[in-house]
Design a protein around this nucleic acid. Structure first.
Length: 415
RNA sequence: GUGCCUAUGGUGUAACGGUUAACACUGGAGCUUGUGGAGCUCUCGAUCAGGGUUCGAUUCCCUGUAGGCACCCCA
């Protein structure tokens, strides 16, 4: 028997299908983000996935290669170069700059976009991911830096984490800049050093110090006696908010593009998840690309996949339950209409109900309900309809309850 | 781009180089239990592709492909 040329059921490389359980998890993340952020006074925005390619190239010439090789970029029918957004920050910078005069500052915004990067997938890194973005625009105060970190911390806690589960590592671009000046490093050397610092946590200590030596510096020369002033200030503010798991880390650099001040990354303390969960910092110059007047900004981002890895390792994944509360099973296919009448009463009252079509026997209908993890079963048969008494079964405990037609709604509403 | 690992039904696993590739779950069909989630019977369904070694390859080797992991990079 020759096999037909069937299509693959695999999704495109590096992207995921969101089966109901997966979508439910994403929804849970989004709901948790929203809840936490809106309590802090942040409002939600969004934008198209498509952006003109130039907004990613403009940040600096060194980014051009990254954009060319690590984004989904194509030319549209009108010869415009288009990129599927690899991140949200340029987009939000564009949006804020576009309405700078109308928006009141400080501005607290968040969004949960999907972003695309053309990369080789591996643990915690995919070609499409959902990413929370939180930003404050229009404040230069370190209080804003601290708030962004505090909000990130609050989200971790809202997801069920303990402070000992993660650590907030702070760095200072300002400190590094003055350091470069003191070392008389030019831009090229400076970048090289930043890259090395960024990699340091992944390298054996010996290699790191040897490579530092090759650049004519030592770890001692780079390490401050006490954390840089801006980092200290932020840490102090965090402590006052009850956040104890923040430390200074020379290796937190955040690439080498638009950051200008305090930068931070949140890591799982379990080494299994080596990728940062949250990352962000201050980027006071980015909006100047779109606008003559500077608008200071500080923000953070967190990806869904690294958060999922974190929650899985920490056993914090929510258990899946469908929105459906009641499954109506029928003793005969001919009862669909009657069953829908019963179901409609419940729907009117706001109870989520699905009705079987009665094509299969009752035991199979129950199996379906169980398989879909629907918590309650309601059987509609001739007896029930004539007597007006319905049996509701709790599919988890197996308990049953006899109710009148009118009693059904109040039963489900009182769960 | 580089390196390492992996590849058997839809899923998870099994098969010293040797009969007809096994088992569980899932799916389908049926029986049965007189409001029934159980049980029983039957059934669909796989060695990634191409070469090589061998009397004989799921098993060993090579190439390709796909996937995973790490590096690079990480906005």
């Amino acid at each position: 028997m020759g096999k037909k040329d069937l299509l693959s059921t695999e999704p495109y490389k590096g992207v995921r299908d969101f089966y109901p359980e997966d979508q439910a998890f994403l929804n849970y993340l989004i709901a948790t983000f929203r809840g936490a952020l809106e309590r802090w006074g942040y409002v939600e925005y969004n934008a198209s996935i498509l952006e003109p390619s130039e907004i990613y190239k403009a940040k600096g010439s060194e980014n051009e290669e990254v954009v060319r090789e690590q984004t989904y970029t194509f030319v549209d029918r009108g010869e415009r170069e288009v990129t599927l957004r690899p991140e949200m920050t340029p987009t939000v910078a564009r949006m804020v700059a576009g309405r700078r005069r109308e928006l009141g500052f400080p501005l607290r915004w968040y969004s949960i976009p999907n972003c695309f990067r053309y990369e080789r997938p591996q643990r915690g890194r995919l070609r499409e991911f959902w990413q929370l973005n939180v930003d404050i625009f229009g404040s230069s105060s370190l209080a804003a830096d601290a708030e962004i970190i505090a909000v990130s911390h609050a989200i971790m806690m809202a997801l069920g984490a303990k402070q000992s589960d993660f650590i907030i590592k702070l760095g200072s671009r300002m400190y590094l800049d003055t350091l470069m000046q003191n070392l008389n490093f030019d831009e090229v050397q400076g970048k090289k050093l930043l890259i090395l610092l960024d990699r340091s946590s992944k390298m054996p200590a010996g290699d790191f110090e040897r490579e530092l030596g090759e650049m004519g510096v030592s770890l001692e020369m780079l390490s401050p006696k006490t954390p840089p002033q801006d980092v200290l200030d932020v840490m102090e503010r965090l402590k006052m908010m009850g956040i104890e798991n923040a430390v200074f880390d020379l290796g937190v650099v955040r690439g080498f593009d638009y950051y200008t001040g305090v930068v931070f990354e949140i890591f799982d303390t379990d080494p299994k998840n080596s990728r940062s969960i949250f990352g962000g910092g201050r980027y006071d110059n980015l909006l100047a690309l779109f606008d003559d007047e500077k608008v200071p900004a500080v923000g953070a981002a967190a990806g869904d996949e690294t958060l999922r890895n974190f929650l899985e390792t920490r056993n914090l994944m929510p258990t899946y339950l469908p929105p459906t509360k009641v499954y109506v099973a029928l003793t005969s296919e001919s009862l669909v209409k009657e069953a829908n009448k019963v179901a409609e009463t419940l729907r009117q009252g706001g109870v989520a109900v699905s009705v079987d079509f009665g094509e299969k026997k009752l035991s199979d209908q129950i199996k379906t309900a169980t398989k879909h993890k629907i918590p309650y079963l309601l059987v509609v048969g001739e007896n029930e309809l004539s007597s007006g008494t319905f049996v509701v079964r709790d599919l988890v405990s197996g308990e049953e309850k006899s109710l009148s037609r009118d009693g059904l709604l109040s039963f489900f509403l009182n769960l």
